[in-house]
Every structure is written in structure tokens, then in C-alpha cells.
Simulated scan of single mutants.
Amino acid sequence: MNLTFTALTRADLPLLGRWLTVPAVARWWADPSDPAALEREYGPRIDGRDRVPTWIVHLDNRPIGLIQWYRYSDEREYLTQMRQIVPVPGDAVSIDYLIGEESALGRGVGPEMIDRLVRQQWAVHDDAGDVVVAVHADNTRSWRALEKAGFSHAADGELDPDNPIDDRRHRIMVRRRMHHEP
């Protein structure tokens, strides 16, 4: 599978805005998609003022999704909430991801992009540990993609949902960094 990652730029924001309105994305990623909201959320990342590296995922040189990586140590409130459910090591990281092009769904792209990003980031960041991701319990497609990318179900717990229409039930998925991995 020919997947590549390019750093998010302002030129990508209109495409991201469109993706956020795709029903399969909007259901779980309930962020505003208007230009001002996108600039507020992603502008600091693009400018390097926010410590959440964010990439556009390309399949065969065509943009199909977004993925981002962040450290729990930079998200103290979230870390506190997560530690009430499952042990989260101090060096743990997490990811968020979406596939905005419906033609890329159901083809194994999600697990592949997750696995590749995790491996790439571990190769670059010696100090990054386990990847711990909370997914709404009803978002089966997302947590199945994580399973296929080497994550295991660590716990169930209650967290504030990304979409206010959802209840608080979440599956916590973990991919442990083994000593032999980069």
C-alpha cells in the first residue's frame, strides 16, 4: 500500500473542512469545519506553536485522511482522566485519525496508516512509550482498525465523548512499545 504522510499546511484546511462534514467522520469527530474554527485549531500546529504534529495521509499520492500524534505529558487534564481508568506511563502518547475519502474506507487503509505512523514516530522519538488511545465504545470501525494495527483492548471506562450526542463509554486500546521496536 503506497501511503505517505505530509505535514498539515494551511492549503490543506479547506480539504480538512470538507472531510469533517463527511457523515462517517462527522459522526465521531464533531469539530467545527468552518475556516475560522480550522485556523484556531490547526493554525498553531502549522506554525509550530502547538506540540501536536499533524499530517495529511496520502494513498497513491492522493490525500485521503489526517493523523496526529501527541504526548500525554502535554495534556495533563486528559492524562488525569485516563489514569482513572488504566495505568498510563509518563512517556505514553496517543493518536487521533480520520479517513475523509469514503473511497478509502474498508480497504485496510486505517490499520496501515496507524501502524506506519506509530512505527515512524517511535523511530524518531526514543523517549516515546506506549500508545494509548480512547475510542468511543460504539465506534467499532475505529477500535477494530487499532486492533488490526497491533493494539489490544486494555480497559473500558467513562470519558467525555468527542460528539455530545454520545454517552461516556469508551474502549481504551494500547500498543505497547517493545524494546526491539524503533
Results as ranks from 00 to 15, higher is better:
R45A: 04
R83W: 08
E101N: 01
D91F: 03
L79W: 14
H58P: 05
E39M: 07
D47K: 01
V109F: 04
D96M: 06
A123T: 11
D96I: 12
G100F: 08
E41N: 14
R51S: 09
D115S: 13
W69C: 06
T54S: 10
D74E: 13
V52R: 15
E101T: 00
I85K: 11
E75I: 09
V88L: 08
L105R: 12
Y70T: 05
R83G: 04
D96G: 10
Q120M: 09
D50V: 06
I85E: 11
M82C: 05
R119E: 06
E41H: 14
G108Q: 07
Q120H: 06
I114D: 08
Y70I: 01
D47V: 01
E41A: 13
L98V: 05
I46H: 10
P44Q: 05
L105M: 15
S94V: 04
E112I: 01
I114T: 12
S103E: 14
I67N: 02
L38I: 05
P111V: 02
D91M: 09
A123I: 12
R107E: 12
R76E: 06
Y78L: 13
L66N: 14
Y78S: 12
L59K: 02
P89L: 06
Q120D: 09
R49I: 06
Y42I: 00
I64W: 14
V57M: 05
Y72P: 10
Q120N: 07
N61L: 00
A37D: 05
E101M: 00
Q121P: 00
M82G: 05
L117M: 15
R119H: 08
V88R: 04
Q120C: 03
E102L: 11
W122C: 15
Y70W: 07
S73L: 11
